[in-house]
């Protein structure tokens, strides 16, 4: 199960809406081992594409250095699908390299509603999990 604060859910959805129709992507880091998403880090989609996302390689290096220095890990890795459902694609599964992370997908295909779902992706296996949204900062 993913337990996540409402303001972080809102921040992800807002980022996804802002970058629509391109895919938006980012990370929520949290203390290593805590499974608690805390620090919202929107990333640039270097692919700037409606059907693909990729963190810029230098941004990626800086992000991991920073998390390492703060003793954090990527608790949530999120991205949006802008014309399809919020479910991991074959590409998402093939490139999922953080078995400890919650892979959050947001679909922005509808203007007024969004799908917000979370998955574990381990060794090519996708498992959807419950999302518990909590209040408070």
């Amino acid at each position: 199960m993913l337990t996540i604060r409402r303001d972080l859910v809102d921040a992800i959805v807002e980022h996804a809406r802002k970058d629509h129709p391109d895919e938006a992507c980012g990370v929520i880091a949290g203390p290593a081992g805590s499974d608690r998403p805390e620090r919202f880090i929107p990333m640039l989609n270097a692919a700037r594409s409606p059907t693909f996302y990729e963190f810029d390689s230098m941004d990626l290096l800086r992000l991991y250095r920073e998390m390492d220095d703060n003793d954090e890990e990527p608790v949530v890795i999120y991205h949006s699908h802008t014309a399809t459902e919020a479910y991991p694609s074959r590409t998402d599964i093939a490139y999922a390299n953080e078995p400890g992370a919650h892979y959050v997908l947001v679909s922005t295909r509808d203007d007024d509603t969004h799908e917000f779902r979370s998955f574990r992706i381990v060794d090519g296996e996708v498992t959807e999990e419950e999302v518990q949204v909590i209040d408070g900062e």
Binding site: T51, F52, F55, L60, L61, H81, S89, T91
Partner: peptide, 14 residues
């Protein structure tokens, strides 16, 4: 330093 890309995309990709 080795880091796997963080990447993916919608079903229409590729």
């Amino acid at each position: 330093t080795v880091l796997p890309a963080v990447a993916g995309g919608a079903p229409a990709a590729r």
